[in-house]
Amino acid sequence: MSEIDGHTQLFGLFAHPAAHSKSPMMHNLSFEKRGINARYLAFDVTQETLPAAIEGLRALHMGGVNLSMPLKEAVIPLLDHMDPAAKLVGAVNTIVNRDGELTGYTTDGAGILASLPADLDLKKTRALIFGAGGAAKSAAIALALAGVEHLTIVNRHVDNGSRGAQLRDLLRYETSAKVDLLSMGETTSVRCAVADAKLIINATSMGMAPNTAMCPVPDASWLKPKQIVYDMVYNPLDTKLLQVAAAAGVQQRIDGLQLLAMQGAAAFKLWTNQEMPLADVRTALNQ
């Protein structure tokens, strides 16, 4: 890695907590592989200290930062500009500093699309998403804007005012997507929707440590081998859902590290205008 000097540019993560993040490893490895004189650090930033941190970003001429929840939403009033996709999602996970002007982006949706099989034609794809929180919203909007044929959202709460209903209505009003909303408790309807879907995404915390036994799909009989099963959880990497999918003979199983790498790659491209060395990053993430 190049030595730090007076020309080294600083990037970082604003999060609370921040110490557990894999982002510094991903970006510093990428800077090294691409010969870029830059460093990426993790900063513990709370909602209370966020305004000061953003002013520090400007004052120190940092190239940009990533943010985690709840900072993704809290940062919006502090920015100069927002990318249209970030406006629609209502959250920012990447900031680019261009001569003191801060623009907010969301790379989660781009990461989701980039991690799908290259030969998947979304315009001919029925998709189903478990969840209606921030991760589900990013996935749903990305799929809708990409022209997915039909989208089913499955959430615990679907009454008026719930996050599920709000997401359904947002997609219907702001995109041309055909969207259905089902309650997790409607077992028969959910099972039929799962069977009809080509792409199934878990955007909930079900299966995430320490609740590793939880799974939105009860057993392998719900799934078919030619489906694509995508779990956004990466701790553990081999979630209960992916295990159930494997038992059903599903060949195309996508884990959360793929999303982590792809959304990081989108941020890296915004900052440097270069491609992240994904093969090296993926190897490092798997270690």
Rank of each mutant, 00 (worst) to 15 (best):
V158C: 13
V158Q: 11
D159S: 12
D159Y: 13
D159H: 13
N160L: 11
N160H: 12
N160S: 13
N160A: 15
N160D: 13
N160R: 13
G161D: 11
G161F: 11
G161P: 12
G161Y: 12
G161V: 10
G161Q: 09
S162E: 07
S162V: 09
S162K: 11
S162D: 07
S162G: 11
S162F: 10
S162A: 11
S162L: 09
S162T: 14
R163E: 12
R163D: 14
R163H: 13
G164P: 07
G164A: 10
G164Q: 03
G164L: 07
G164N: 06
G164S: 06
G164C: 07
A165V: 02
A165M: 12
A165R: 14
A165D: 09
A165E: 14
Q166N: 14
Q166S: 10
Q166Y: 09
L167I: 09
L167Y: 03
L167M: 06
L167K: 02
R168K: 15
R168Y: 02
D169Y: 04
D169W: 07
D169T: 08
D169P: 04
L170N: 01
L170W: 00
L170T: 08
L171C: 05
L171M: 01
L171W: 01
L171Y: 00
L171P: 01
L171F: 03
L171H: 00
L171T: 01
L171G: 00
L171N: 01
R172W: 02
R172C: 12
R172I: 07
R172H: 05
R172T: 06
Y173L: 13
Y173R: 15
Y173N: 13
Y173S: 14
Y173F: 07
E174L: 00
E174T: 01
E174R: 07
E174D: 10
E174F: 00
E174G: 02
E174Y: 00
T175C: 04
T175M: 03
T175Y: 05
T175W: 04
T175P: 07
T175R: 03
S176E: 14
S176R: 13
S176G: 15
S176Q: 11
A177E: 09
A177P: 08
A177H: 07
A177T: 12
A177S: 11
A177M: 09
A177V: 12
A177N: 11
K178I: 11
K178L: 11
K178N: 11
K178V: 12
K178F: 09
K178R: 15
V179R: 03
V179K: 03
V179N: 03
V179C: 01
V179T: 10
V179E: 06
V179Q: 04
V179H: 04
V179L: 04
D180F: 02
D180M: 01
D180P: 07
D180R: 00
L181N: 03
L181F: 06
L181D: 08
L181T: 08
L181I: 02
L181G: 05
L182E: 04
L182Q: 06
L182R: 05
L182M: 05
S183M: 05
S183R: 04
S183D: 10
S183L: 04
M184S: 15
M184T: 15
M184F: 15
M184I: 14
M184C: 10
G185V: 06
G185T: 11
G185S: 15
G185C: 07
G185R: 11
E186A: 15
E186N: 13
E186L: 02
E186W: 10
E186I: 00
E186T: 02
E186K: 09
T187F: 08
T187A: 12
T187R: 13
T187C: 00
T187W: 08
